[in-house]
């Protein structure tokens, strides 16, 4: 019962404190969608799946024969999400949250509530993003399906033209980036127990950049790039393995954080 009270408090309180950051989401998504529409509608791209892949597709595998291209949109969208979830737990713990924590009587419940809040914030971000993309499709007359236009791979992501690329399932296109974002966001929150939030944000950014550079199963950012799925390229990452690895990260963050927070000194790191 106490846990649900804490979870309700966190969702309500964080929305009160962080709602301004959510205002940027529609602006950001539309800023990406609109130029994409102007540029690629002529090649038949413009459905929900195309827009979504443009934002969350990532970048094709880097090989030493090519120059490394930084996946700007993918990185900025995800980093903004991780920025949204960065400060609330830390600030709460040094302010009003101390009174909440003491009244709750349980450090583990407090941590668990923050984990739930964190996942809820990521899901909210993706839901808001999906709703905005869908709305954009409605206005531009694009289909509301997760089908990918064939030319997306070759024209937008500059992938080889001699391969037949698949249409995505919702799981690969939306589910894997969502699960990856939940895992990385939990990891970022866990690290903030020991590091200042800005440094844990730096670690998050490093994970994304290294993942863009190395296509390896343990570079978890790859699971958030649907065009690096094994369903698309033979040496891609397996969504099944991804689900196992990412779920393990999430569970480890909950357990390690719960144990660490039991002995954690609630004191301003700045002092």
């Amino acid at each position: 019962m106490m846990f649900f009270k804490l979870a309700y408090f966190d969702i309500k309180n964080s929305f009160n404190l962080e709602w301004k950051k959510l205002l940027v989401v529609p602006i950001g998504f539309l800023t990406v969608c609109f130029p994409f529409y102007l540029r690629y509608a002529k090649i038949g791209a413009g459905g929900f799946g195309d827009f979504w892949l443009y934002m969350f597709g990532g970048i094709k595998e880097y090989t030493y024969d090519d120059a490394f291209k930084f996946p700007v949109i993918w990185t900025v969208v995800l980093l903004y999400l991780f920025y949204i979830t960065l400060y609330y737990p830390y600030n709460d713990l040094l302010g009003y949250g101390q009174n909440v924590l003491i009244r709750s009587g349980s450090r583990f419940n407090w941590w668990l509530s923050k984990c739930l809040w964190n996942a809820f914030a990521v899901v909210t971000f993706f839901t808001l993003g999906a709703a905005l993309v869908a709305l954009f499709c409605v206005f531009t007359g694009g289909p509301l399906s997760t089908e990918i236009s064939p030319l997306m791979y070759t024209e937008v992501f500059e992938m080889a033209a001699d391969i037949v690329y698949p249409s995505y399932t919702v799981g690969t296109l939306i589910g894997m980036p969502l699960l990856t974002a939940v895992a990385i966001s939990q990891l970022q929150m866990l690290l903030s127990l020991w590091l200042r939030p800005i440094f844990s944000f730096g670690v998050t950014a490093a994970i994304l950049i290294l993942s863009a550079y190395y296509l390896k199963p343990f570079m978890v950012g790859n699971y958030a790039m649907p065009i690096r799925s094994v369903e698309v390229i033979p040496n891609g990452v397996s969504p099944q393995n991804g689900v196992i690895i990412l779920s393990a990260i999430i569970i480890a963050c909950i357990v390690i954080g719960g144990i660490a927070f039991k002995y954690y000194d609630i004191i301003n790191k700045e002092n």
Partner: peptide, 20 residues
């Protein structure tokens, strides 16, 4: 003292009191 900026004094205390 640390409270929620966008709430009144009463609302702040009510939110805290709701926990116990």
């Amino acid at each position: 003292p640390a409270f929620l900026d966008s709430y009144t004094g009463f609302q702040n205390l009510k939110m805290l009191a709701a926990i116990k």
